[in-house]
């Protein structure tokens, strides 16, 4: 069973819909005991970093996520991915879960349209089990204004948008983060979710 962390942010139903479609059992939950009982955990998220971290902490989920990430696969999506990193500068400096080395900073380059919204092509970095069995040209769907930085050692995939934008980070163990939305990325996204489900 996959626990989808429901901490009051974003459209988490689309993640649930995708897992249902793939026949992968999942549950929306904000209950620490259910995260402990789950085989895998997905941390979704849309919104602002500081508010989301506060919600995680208020529900006692930050500590649980850090513990569970040592034991079972954890996939952060979009803001959920950013929260895996050490700290963010969205509005104010704010500590993340610190499961992947790196920071979160506003995207910026002359003439660059922000948010980075649309389909962009994955370029592969360090080997990552979630990126197996994908077509040679794999496009995924992004919507974000902040991006991971200083995470070169964990960079499993990036896209080109005013420079190298991290698309997937991986700690080499249990922790994965997708800046894009696999649940909105067509067949490529579904394959990434299938790969995640296949880890256990």
């Amino acid at each position: 069973m996959i626990a989808i962390v429901d901490y009051g942010a974003g459209n988490i139903f689309s993640v649930k819909n995708a897992l249902d479609y793939l026949g992968m059992e999942s549950k929306l939950t904000d209950n620490p005991a259910e995260l402990e009982a789950a085989d895998e955990v997905i941390l979704p998220g849309v919104g602002a970093f500081p508010a989301a971290m506060k919600m995680l902490e208020a529900k006692g989920l930050a500590t649980v996520l850090k513990e569970q990430a040592q034991k079972k696969p954890l996939l952060g999506i979009c803001l959920g991915m950013q929260m895996l990193l050490e700290k963010s500068y969205e509005f104010e400096e704010c500590a993340g879960l610190g499961l992947i080395p790196g920071t979160v900073e506003r995207m910026d380059a002359p003439g660059l349209i922000i948010p980075h919204m649309g389909w962009n092509k994955l370029e592969m970095g360090i080997p990552c089990p979630l990126l197996r069995n994908l077509p040679a040209e794999s496009y995924v769907y992004f919507v974000h204004s902040y991006a991971a930085r200083n995470c070169e050692n964990a960079l499993a995939a990036w896209v080109e948008y005013g420079g190298k934008v991290p698309a997937m980070v991986y700690d080499g163990g249990h922790v994965f983060g997708a800046q894009f939305h696999p649940e909105k990325s067509g067949e490529v996204g579904l394959q990434i979710l299938r790969n995640f489900g296949g880890l256990v």
Binding site: F13, S14, N17, D20, E183, S185, G186
Partner: peptide, 8 residues
């Protein structure tokens, strides 16, 4: 539709 279609 959202249950069957996984694009925006």
């Amino acid at each position: 539709t959202a249950k069957r279609v996984f694009v925006p």
